[in-house]
Design a protein around this nucleic acid. Structure first.
Length: 498
RNA sequence: GGUCCUGUGGCCGAGUGGCUAGGCAGAGCUCUGCAAAAGCUCCUACAGCGGUUCGAAUCCGCUCGGGACCUCCA
C-alpha cells in the first residue's frame, strides 16, 4: 500500500508522513473562540481534521487529538456591555464572561455533534492554562527574547529573526515586516511593529483579568496554543492544523515562542485548510457575510433557499480538496444533497445484497477487475494528501454497479465472492468510519418502521387486486408528508423519509 | 503597495505532459398500471496571447480577471 503523504505548509510540498513516536500521532488543531456563534466557515477545519483524525486511526495510529477552546480575550456580546461595573450592585446584570463562554461552548459542541465529528482527546481551555502560559512567558523573558513595558510583555521579533527564520512558514520577509508603517493601537509600547504581545496589561474596564508577575492582565493571542500544545503533546509533535488565515501571524508566532522556550521547532507537519467563500469572498466577520450554523441547519437566513442537513454540509466539504477554496451557494449545496442521497441509497442497497460463495469466481471478470481497481484507489487517493473528493468520485462510479445488482440487471455473481465482500466492507469503512457520513433521513425510527411496514403490506395487497385507487392514495398521502414510496423491481417496496 | 494562491463545460468541482474524473442540472431511450427511483446513451471544457515539446488544462513568459494574508479572523 502507498505511503501517506501530506502537504506541509512549512516546506510547501507533499512529504511522506512519519510519526515521531511509532504508532502514535500528536495532533493539535486551533479551536474556536467562544465569544460568538460558529458559522459555516468554521465548520471546514473541524470537519477536515475530523476526517484526518479518523483516517490516521484507520491507519492504525493511536492519535492524541488536542483542540483548544479560546475563552480568554476581550469579549463582548451584543446588547451587553463589556464593562466591569464594580460599583453596580446588580451583579446578575453585568456581563459575566464565563457565562458567555459557556453558552457558546455548548453551542459549538452541539454543532460538532450534528456534524458527526469525533470529540478531541483533550479540549483544553485558555483560561484553564493561565499558569502554563505565564511560565512560558517567564522562560522567554529569561532567554532574553521578550521585554516588559508598562505591565505588558512583547516578543522581540527582530532579535529572534537574527538567529532564526521568522517568516518561514508564512513566506514573510522580516525586513518588510519591520518596515510596516501601519498605524495600530498600542504600537508605541513595542520596540518594533513586528513584535507581538505575550501578555497584555488589562485596562480597568477589561473584564477578563489575571494576576501575573507583570501585574494584572491577560495572555496574548498566540501564547495559549504554544503552552497547551507543549503541555499535552510535548516540545515537538507531529501535526498542527488550522485555517490558512492563521498562518500569519498566529502560527508564525507560535513557532517563534515555542522554539525559544523548548529549543526545538514545535511542529513537524503544518496542515492548513482553505477558506469557504460566498460569492467568491471569504466568509468572515469582517466581511459581514457569515451564515451561522444554526441558520444553515434551520434555513433561517435571507441567503438560504432552504435548510441544509449537517451531514449534507459535511459531504459538501468533503467533495472538495481541503486546500482549495470552496464556494458556497444554494445550488452547490443542493447538488451535494442529491448526490449524497444517491450515494447513500446505493450503500443501503449494497448492505442488503448477499452473495452466495458457492461459486466464488467472478462471472464478469472485466467488471470485477474494474471495481477492484476503483476500490484499491481509495487508499492511494487518501494517501495523496487526503483527496477525499477523488475517493468519492470513485464511489460514484461504483454506484451504477450496485444499483444494477439491486435491480438484477447484472447478477451479484458478476463480482467474485471475495471482491463482493470487499466492496461491502470498503463502503462501510469509508463512508461511515473514515468520512463520518450517516443517513440524513428519519427512516431509522423503530415505531415508524412498523407503521410503514403495515402500509406497505396494505398497498401490496391493493396492487395485487389492481386496486390502484387505494395504492395510489397511500403513496400520494405519504408523499404529501414527505415520505417517498418506491416500487422496486421484483415487487418489493422501499421508502424514504425527509 | 508587498507576499502568495487561483481562473476548468449551464452550475459545483477532480486533475501527476499523452490514457475524454465525479456530482448537480438538461436531452433521448429502457424498465413500469401510473409515479418515483434505477439503468443505458448524449452534452468532451480548460481566461487570452505567445513559447518549450512529437504532444500542454497540466511546464515557461506576458496580458486580463478573481481571491487570501500583511489587522481580530477557521
Amino acid at each position: 500500500m502507498s505511503q501517506l503523504k501530506v502537504y506541509n505548509s512549512l516546506s510547501r510540498q507533499k512529504e511522506v508522513f512519519t510519526s515521531l513516536t511509532p504508532g502514535h500521532v500528536g495532533m493539535y488543531v486551533c479551536g474556536p473562540t467562544v465569544s460568538g456563534e460558529s458559522h459555516l466557515g468554521h465548520a471546514r477545519p473541524y470537519i477536515t481534521f475530523d476526517v484526518i483524525h479518523r483516517y490516521l486511526q484507520h491507519l492504525g495510529y493511536k492519535v492524541r487529538y488536542v483542540r483548544n477552546i479560546t475563552d480568554a480575550g476581550h469579549f463582548e456580546e451584543e446588547g451587553r456591555e463589556a464593562v466591569d461595573k464594580i460599583a453596580s450592585k446588580a451583579i446578575l446584570e453585568k456581563l459575566e464572561p464565563m457565562e458567555l463562554v459557556q453558552k457558546y461552548t455548548n453551542l459549538f459542541h452541539w454543532a460538532m455533534a450534528q456534524f458527526n465529528t469525533i470529540p478531541p482527546s483533550i479540549e483544553p481551555t485558555a483560561t484553564g492554562h493561565i499558569v502554563e502560559q505565564i511560565e512560558m512567558i517567564k522562560k522567554i523573558i529569561g532567554a532574553g527574547y521578550a521585554y516588559e513595558v508598562n505591565g505588558s510583555v512583547y516578543f522581540d521579533v527582530k532579535k529572534y529573526a537574527a538567529g532564526h527564520e521568522y517568516g518561514k512558514l508564512s513566506g514573510r520577509v522580516i525586513e518588510d515586516l519591520l518596515e510596516t508603517t501601519r498605524e495600530l493601537e498600542g504600537q508605541e509600547e513595542k520596540r518594533d511593529t513586528a513584535d507581538f504581545a505575550l501578555w497584555k496589561n488589562a485596562a480597568p474596564e477589561h473584564i477578563m483579568r489575571w494576576q501575573s508577575p507583570w501585574g494584572v492582565g491577560y495572555p496574548g493571542w498566540h501564547i495559549e496554543c504554544s503552552a497547551m500544545a507543549t503541555k499535552y503533546l510535548g516540545p515537538q509533535f507531529d501535526i498542527h492544523g488550522g485555517g490558512m488565515d492563521l498562518l500569519f501571524p498566529h502560527h508564525e508566532s507560535e513557532i517563534a515562542q515555542s522554539t525559544i522556550c523548548n529549543h526545538t521547532a514545535p511542529v513537524r507537519y503544518w496542515i492548513h485548510n482553505n477558506m469557504i467563500t460566498i460569492n467568491g469572498r471569504k466568509m468572515g466577520k469582517s466581511y459581514n457575510n457569515v451564515i451561522k450554523l444554526t441558520e444553515l441547519f434551520s434555513g433561517d437566513h435571507p441567503m438560504l433557499e432552504k435548510s441544509y442537513h449537517p451531514i449534507t454540509v459535511r459531504f459538501f466539504i468533503l467533495q472538495t480538496h481541503y486546500r482549495s477554496t470552496l464556494d458556497f451557494s444554494n445550488e452547490a449545496l443542493q447538488a451535494s444533497e442529491k448526490g449524497l442521497k444517491r450515494l447513500w441509497d446505493a450503500y443501503q442497497h449494497l448492505g442488503k445484497l448477499t452473495r452466495d460463495s458457492a461459486d466464488a469466481e467472478a462471472g464478469d471478470p472485466e467488471l470485477d477487475a474494474k471495481v477492484a481497481g476503483l476500490l484499491k484507489e481509495f487508499d492511494e487517493f487518501m494517501n495523496d494528501d487526503f483527496s477525499t473528493a477523488k475517493v468519492l468520485a470513485n464511489m460514484f462510479e461504483i454506484v451504477p454497479v450496485i444499483n444494477s445488482m439491486k435491480d438484477r440487471i447484472i447478477p451479484v455473481t458478476a463480482l467474485s465472492a471475495e471482491n463482493f465482500l470487499f466492496l461491502q466492507n470498503r463502503f462501510r469503512t469509508w463512508l461511515e468510519d473514515i468520512f463520518g457520513l450517516k443517513s440524513v433521513s428519519e427512516a431509522d425510527h423503530g415505531k415508524l418502521q412498523g407503521v410503514m411496514q403495515l402500509l406497505i403490506d396494505i398497498r401490496k395487497e391493493a396492487k395485487n387486486r389492481k386496486d390502484f385507487v387505494t395504492s395510489d392514495l397511500i403513496r400520494n398521502q405519504l408523499a404529501s408528508i414527505g415520505i417517498t414510496l418506491k416500487d422496486e423491481k421484483g415487487g418489493e417496496m422501499t421508502w424514504n423519509a425527509e
